[in-house]
Amino acid sequence: MATFFGEVLSVYSRAVEEDDEDPEQDEEDEQIRRELEEKREVHLRWSPEVSELLKSGNKLPCREFILAVGHNAAKFLSVYVLTSANWDTLGHASVWNERSRAVTGQSSEESACVFYRHKENPTVMICQVTCYVAEDQLFQWTEKVFDCLQHRELSVTVLSDSSVADYKTADYLCTSSAPFLRSLHTGTFSGQPVCQSLEQPNIITGLPAAVLNHCQVQRIATVVYQCYSDVIGPDSVSMETFKPALTKLAKSIQLNSSPNTDILRKMVKTTDIQSNLYI
């Protein structure tokens, strides 16, 4: 569906199509479907050292896994954590789906989902995801990634972006309240989240939800911090809301509390010209 301004929204109907599958499906249809499914598979590409480790049946030792989903969350980590140069790139995940651009080439695809590991403390890992992971790929992404990690003593922190328009509340949301943080955690998470818990009837979807689902059934201590922002595209104020979430992990991760403004400007600038709404 397109709105008045031409943005394309994915709108779900509550009506459900009757699934009238033809039992005698065309062979060709079947083949096309199979090929599509193969193409949509999530691939993890690790550095030679990690590949070797995984090949020998071992898993990546990991105690702290920080996953950033969305531009604000990912750029928050880029600006406040990854600038310290104490991080090795471990690998990346590649995902192809209907929103992947055909021509943009390998480089953008590779940078859309990257894994990093702390040089001095190799049990601390970071993953930044800025690409769209389709509904049918979320489960697979989560299974594949967590299959590479050691589960013992693993604790997961997910930082995620969301629009304040998706936040449901009976009260009037005054404009000064956004951006704000809400948390949701699995049963085995024993700490105290740094912000208010996500109120009913709000829900979390997408990759953070897939990770929560996986960690709930696998009993991995996990907390999701969702930032509700009223700005389209990355902005420094929304990024800062994630700060308290990482101060809890101060033992393993040093936060660069006063980042270089040039870096910050560069991060925010990239999306400046994308909207033609107010030319």
Binding site: S197, I203, I204, N213, V217
Partner: peptide, 26 residues
């Protein structure tokens, strides 16, 4: 736990008091 359903998560939908409100549901 299956890949056939679109992932979602929320707090306890059947919460009756403050104590049981923060419980993850899938």
């Amino acid at each position: 736990h299956t890949d056939c359903l679109i992932p979602m998560a929320g707090n306890n939908p059947y919460s009756t008091c403050k104590e049981d409100a923060q419980e993850l549901h899938t």
